[in-house]
Design a protein around this nucleic acid. Structure first.
Lengths: 161, 161
DNA sequence: TATTGTTATACTCTATAACTATA
DNA sequence: TATAGTTATAGAGTATAACAATA
């Protein structure tokens, strides 16, 4: 737009030709969704760097916590809580079972159900993960006061349906 | 764990056998990352319902805004801004070009570059999208006071690297 | 030599559909 | 009939690697 016809007659520089200047982000910085997305990506990157050597997704951590606090939980309950399909849970559980962190045990009460349990190894691993997780969270919480932190959690919860 | 050996001797009920009761979420509700993720998912669902009939990802919206505010922007700049690989940008641009919202124009200044421009149709479409986007955002902003909203944006930005 | 855009390829996460065994 | 789990398959989104054109 700026290159051929009218060369330097614009207030805003055409960004396409230099590669150095930063972009005009327009309305994006004022959008809630955009800022939440960037914040989540920053947290996600730090999580990968600092928790479990990067070989654990946040969803798997959540799953371990849920299994830990709800021994014998059914996979379909995990699916509902994590807002994913029950078929997707199977793959996650397969993976955690293959590395020995959880086990399936058929429920004698309702034999359709495979109760999910943390193994001893899984419990040990989860304790270590929680320690790494706490340090990870601290790096972000330290960027604000206690009051701000509480406000942030409150407002985030208010956004959740 | 609760089913076979010691039956109803636990304070917390075994969740695996009823399917009705809600899960114990453990430490998750106190985690920043967990709450940001849930908030983002809620916003994402509303975005899909209410913006562009669900056929537009947030990333594509951002890309349109960036192209609109930075005519002639290079694809590699978009890649850096969106924190994705330049190869991934190609597919996004291909899609937007196929539906006639943007065009590529080889830069005469640096002939390696394909400047990205919104078409007239793209501009028209973006204006409509911005209106839908404002209503979408409003549904969440309305859940808090103006002061809370400003605090939230401030704190979210502080989390971003 | 380095950079921009491109293609080919593969991987991850998830959904959908169909199936089984139980209820 | 309905539900829990499973399998097979497919789609979206992304990354990596190799390449052509250009700087």
């Amino acid at each position: 737009m700026a290159e051929n016809e009218r060369k330097p007659v614009r207030q805003r520089k055409a960004s396409g030709d230099t590669g150095i200047e930063s972009l005009d982000l327009g309305i994006l910085p004022g959008l809630l969704g955009y800022n939440i997305r960037l914040a989540q990506m920053a947290i996600w990157r730090d999580f990968q760097r600092s928790v479990s050597n990067g070989d654990l997704r946040p969803g798997l951590f959540s799953l371990l916590v849920l299994a830990s606090h709800n021994p014998g939980v059914a996979q379909i309950q995990l699916a509902r809580q994590l807002a994913i399909d029950k078929a997707s849970v199977v793959a996650l559980i397969d993976r955690l079972e293959r590395v020995g962190l959880i086990t399936r045990r058929r429920s004698p009460v309702d034999r359709r159900r495979q109760g999910i349990y943390l193994t001893a190894e899984g419990n040990k691993r989860l304790r270590a993960l929680k320690r790494e997780m706490a340090l990870h969270e601290k790096r972000f919480i330290d960027r604000m006061s206690q009051a701000e932190y509480e406000t942030l959690l409150t407002l985030l919860k208010r956004l959740q349906d």
